[in-house]
Amino acid sequence: MTAAPLLEVRDLRVRYGAIEALRGVSLEVPAGQVVALIGANGAGKSTTLRAVSRMIPLAAGAVALAGEDVTRLASHQLVARGMAHAPEGRGIFLNLTVRENLELGAYLRTDRDGIAADAAESDALFPILAERRDQVAGTLSGGEQQMLAVARALMSRPRLLLLDEPSLGLAPQVVEKIFSVLRQVNERGVALLLVEQNAHKALQLAHRAYVLETGQIVMSGTGRELLQSPEVRKAYLGE
């Protein structure tokens, strides 16, 4: 018997009023792996992540985390079970300081020493955030906010991290920085479900990938397979 995947999504359906944004999405994220979700604008990538982390209600479908059915849980209960989500638009609390944002990432944790250790690690990963600790997050640049979004999500010590376009609108060297951090994070055993416009970078990092089109999975395979697939190259890699 093989162990259940860390995240298992079955036949997920989501509606926005009359629009059916997800029409039966199924996917799996094995423990410790990077899974990329690519697709055109409006395909339903963000909706998938939002539905998994229960930012929005599901019309149908099931979500299991490490074999446990979590379909009926609320966002904060999923965090308690090891899921973190750096949402589309970064979701930084612009009215709070960098420090407060990071503290909220660790909201459910009570291990002071562990939190301090993770904060120190986050400072090492993102020295620029350490410099800005007591600044209101609204004063950060876009790249700094994105780093904060990743740093904050890591403060919950997740087993699974959902990332929604972490490279969107960032300068190339910041994108490099973010991806190098994501690689390190994954090397420490955190599984990633990564939504990216930058399909090339995402597929290079990913063990597995899914292609989403108008609310449905139309293709899946290893990162390498999709990188080499002519359809993917044409539609998402701009060739």
């Binding site: 982390s53 229960r54 930012m55 609320a74 966002s75 904060h76 965090v79 308690a80 973190a84 989500h85 949402p87 979701g91 609390f93 612009l94 009215n95 709070l96 407060e100 503290e103 909220l104 990432g105 909201y107 459910l108 904050r152 919950s156």
Partner: peptide, 18 residues
């Protein structure tokens, strides 16, 4: 802090475990 976070964005506050 949690209250101020909820006031800024309740959905994202939920993602913090609040």
């Amino acid at each position: 802090t949690a209250m101020r976070a909820v006031s800024f964005d309740p959905q994202v506050a939920g993602l913090m475990g609040i």
